[in-house]
Design a protein around this nucleic acid. Structure first.
Lengths: 209, 209
DNA sequence: ACCTGAACACCGTTCAAGT
DNA sequence: ACCTGAACACCGTTCAAGT
C-alpha cells in the first residue's frame, strides 16, 4: 500500500478500479462457502457485498464455474500445507504418515463445503494447471510413501498405486463423514481414521496364508 | 395393465389422472440424470416430457430435493442388488468379497451421475426411512464381513468399524474415478480396485513387527 | 483495461382456481 | 384427490455503452 514505484499515486483509489477485484471475489466466495454453503454463492450476492456490479466478475473469471475452480485450487493449496505440516511436525516416518491421514480428515471436517467444491463435478483437470495445486497435494502423499519405502517400512509397490489407494481411504472417510453417513460425524470420523491407520498397515485378514 | 379386480375399467385413462405420476416422475428423473446429468433435471423439463403441468409434481413430492432423494433411494436399492448378486454369484467367501468390491466400483462407473446424487449433500438420513435403502446396501457389506469372521478369515474387530473402513475404500475409489482424478478413469479404477482388494487383506507394511 | 445497466432466457415455488 | 395457469422472486450470462 502507499505509493508504488514509477506510478503516479492516485488521489482517490476511485472505489472500484480497486486493482485486486479478482482476489476479493475469490476471498468472498470462499468466505460464503464456509459460512453458508456453496448454494449461497451467487454472483449477484458476491458482487453486492463487494460493492461492485454483478457483471464485473466476468473481467476476471470466464464464468461462475471458473470462480469455483479457483476456490477449489485454493483449497488444495491449504490442504497441501496441512498435510506437509502434519508430516514434518510429527517427525516424518510412520508416525508422520499417520498424522498426515488425520490431518486430511480434519481438513475435510473443518471445511466441509469447501472440500466438497474441491471434489465437485467441476473437474479441476491437470490441464488447467499453471501450478496444479491438486497434483501438488497428491505429490506430498507420494513423497511420504517413497520415503517410507526407502526406509523399508512400506512394501515396494508402485508408489503411484500405493498413493492412490491411501488417498481413496482418506477421501472415502472424509466423504462419508461429510455426507452424514457416520453418526456424530466428527468423533466417529476420527475413530475411523485411527482404525484405518492400523488397517492400512496390516490389512483385515487374520493371517498371511 | 388390463383390468384390475373389483375396480370398474376406465373408458379412457384420461391422459393425466394417470394414477402413477409419482413413478413416472421418478423414472424420468433417473433417465435424465443418466443421459444428461443432474443439472439437466429441471422440474419444467421433466413435467414437459411427461405432458404434465410444471407444478403437478408437488402433489407427489415436497420439492425438488425430495424428488432427488427418491432418486438416491432407488440408486441404493439397485446398488444393493448388484452387491448381493456379486457376492452370491462368486460363491461368497473371500472371492465373493472381492467380487463385491469390484461390483461396487463398476456400479459407480456405470451410473456416475446417479451415484453422485446418492452421495450428494441431500443427506438421505436414516430418519427418512420406511425402508432406508442406503442402510440396506451397507448391511449387505456388514453381513458378508460377519460371515468371513465366522469362517475365521477376517480379524474379529467390530463388524461395523470394519464395514465402514471397507466402504470408505470403495467409495473413495469410486469418487476419485468420477471426479476424473484417475487417468483413463474406467480401466485405472478397476486396476486400483484389484490392488485395493489385495491391500485390504494384507495392508501396506512390509512386516508385522 | 475495467466496470456499468439493461435485457434475456432461464430457474423453483406459491396460490387461487378448476374438475 | 389431482392437476392447471398465472405470478413471484430469484438465477447466470450477453452486450452495448461508459470512463
Amino acid at each position: 500500500m502507499g505509493t508504488r514505484k514509477g506510478r503516479p499515486a492516485r488521489k482517490k483509489p476511485d472505489a472500484y478500479h480497486h486493482g485486486d477485484l479478482r482476489r476479493a471475489l475469490l476471498h468472498e466466495a470462499v468466505r460464503t462457502i464456509q459460512t453458508h454453503g456453496v448454494a449461497a454463492v451467487t454472483l449477484r450476492s458476491v458482487a453486492e457485498t463487494l460493492g461492485v456490479s454483478r457483471t464485473a466478475l466476468y473481467r476476471h473469471f470466464a464464468d461462475k464455474q471458473a470462480l469455483l475452480g479457483a476456490v477449489a485450487a485454493e483449497g488444495f493449496r491449504t490442504l497441501r500445507a496441512s498435510l506437509v505440516a502434519a508430516w514434518e511436525g510429527a517427525g516424518r516416518g510412520r508416525v508422520g504418515f499417520e498424522a498426515m491421514g488425520r490431518a486430511y480428515v480434519r481438513f475435510a471436517l473443518d471445511h466441509p463445503s469447501h472440500y466438497r467444491v474441491m471434489f465437485g463435478s467441476g473437474a479441476v483437470a491437470p490441464e488447467t494447471a499453471p501450478d496444479d495445486p491438486g497434483g501438488a497435494a497428491f505429490q506430498a502423499l507420494v513423497d511420504a510413501l517413497v520415503e517410507l519405502q526407502q526406509r523399508g517400512e512400506v512394501r515396494p509397490d508402485p508408489p503411484l498405486l500405493l498413493a492412490l489407494y491411501v488417498w481413496a481411504v482418506v477421501h472415502g472417510i472424509a466423504m462419508l463423514a461429510l455426507d452424514g453417513q457416520l453418526d456424530e460425524s466428527a468423533p466417529q470420523a476420527e475413530a475411523l481414521m485411527d482404525f484405518a491407520n492400523a488397517r492400512l498397515r496390516t490389512g483385515i485378514a487374520t493371517a498371511l496364508d
